[in-house]
């Protein structure tokens, strides 16, 4: 009896202590994250240019945003770039992981090589690829100098193809990361499964596709989340590689926002674009998070 009483006395105290310890975290969350999001949303309804002002203009900035060819193209580019990038990284990363999983000699050397591009920043990646692919400086010129006068590879300055070059560079940079995640997942797969599959007469590709891939779901999910974040905030790669060109062919939403926030000094339009981007992300993530939480609940019960 007495024991019970002391526990129930202590519990609120403990709770209070815990909450006090969390207070700085709560403050940061409320002020730095939610606060700035609300502030951004508020500015997007004003006519602010280089400094925030309180002249409210309703949805004018949003109307202009969707009239802007550049914004519409930025969003389309993001969808194309994003899906190709995520898919490309998953496929290449998985294949590399499977190859490394064959107990090859010098595995750690290969692993380092494949992971290395990820250690290189997007700015450096962009510059290097820009030099390699620039028709008057890089690959095209090198091959032509070898005597193949008619060799042409000018995708970087071709407005219908530049976005694929951008995607290629991004995949080169990030697929090593996916490889590392997948490899960690593969190491968790029980080796006896392979023996069992072989007894059942399954070929190696069939084994990896039907048995291993489903087991790697957590690795795939974290890869997709990481890559998705990279797509939304893609800015430095574009700036270093194409600065959005040729024309608007490789513009992405994050670059649109940065350009209007600073160089073009239109806070209203830039914040409206940020809000639209945030709403888009939430619209994609909310159903995903819901599915995840439902699944977690099902496992628990």
């Amino acid at each position: 009896m007495a024991q019970d009483g002391s526990i129930s006395m202590r519990r609120p105290l403990k709770l209070l202590q815990g909450q006090t310890a969390l207070l700085p975290g709560w403050l940061i969350l409320i002020v730095a994250y939610i606060g700035t999001i609300l502030w951004t949303a508020r500015i997007s309804f004003t006519a602010s240019r280089s400094i925030p002002v309180d002249t409210f203009v309703g949805f004018d900035q949003y109307a202009r945003l969707f009239r802007s060819n550049r914004w519409v193209q930025s969003v389309e580019n993001m969808l194309l770039y994003g899906s190709l990038f995520i898919l490309g990284c998953l496929i290449i990363g998985f294949l590399l992981a499977v190859l490394l999983d064959q107990k090859v000699k010098g595995e750690s050397v290969f692993r380092t090589i494949f992971l290395y591009p990820y250690a290189v920043s997007f700015v450096v990646t962009g510059l290097v690829w820009q030099w390699v692919l620039n028709p008057s400086l890089g690959l095209q010129k090198a091959v032509r100098d070898l005597g193949f006068e008619n060799f042409t590879f000018d995708w970087l300055v071709d407005r219908d193809r530049a976005i694929y070059v951008l995607t290629g560079a991004a995949v080169w940079q990030a697929s090593g990361l996916v490889m590392a995640l997948m490899l960690a997942g593969l190491r968790g797969v029980d080796g006896d499964l392979w023996k069992a599959a072989r007894v059942d007469g399954a070929s190696a590709p069939r084994y990896y596709l039907r048995v291993v891939l489903p087991l790697l779901k957590p690795s795939i999910f974290s890869s997709v989340v990481l890559l998705g974040v990279a797509v939304i905030k893609s800015y430095d790669l574009v700036v270093a590689m194409t600065s959005g060109g040729p024309g608007n062919a490789t513009e992405l939403p994050a670059k649109f926002i940065m350009d209007y926030l600073f160089g073009r000094q239109n806070l209203g339009l830039a914040t409206a674009a940020s809000v639209v981007l945030l709403v888009t992300v939430i619209a994609v993530l909310a159903p995903l998070a819901y599915v995840q939480s439902q699944r977690a609940r099902r496992i628990r019960t």
Partner: peptide
Amino acid sequence: SGDAAGSFGD
């Protein structure tokens, strides 16, 4: 303005 200049530049 930076905004107008940039839009024409685009």
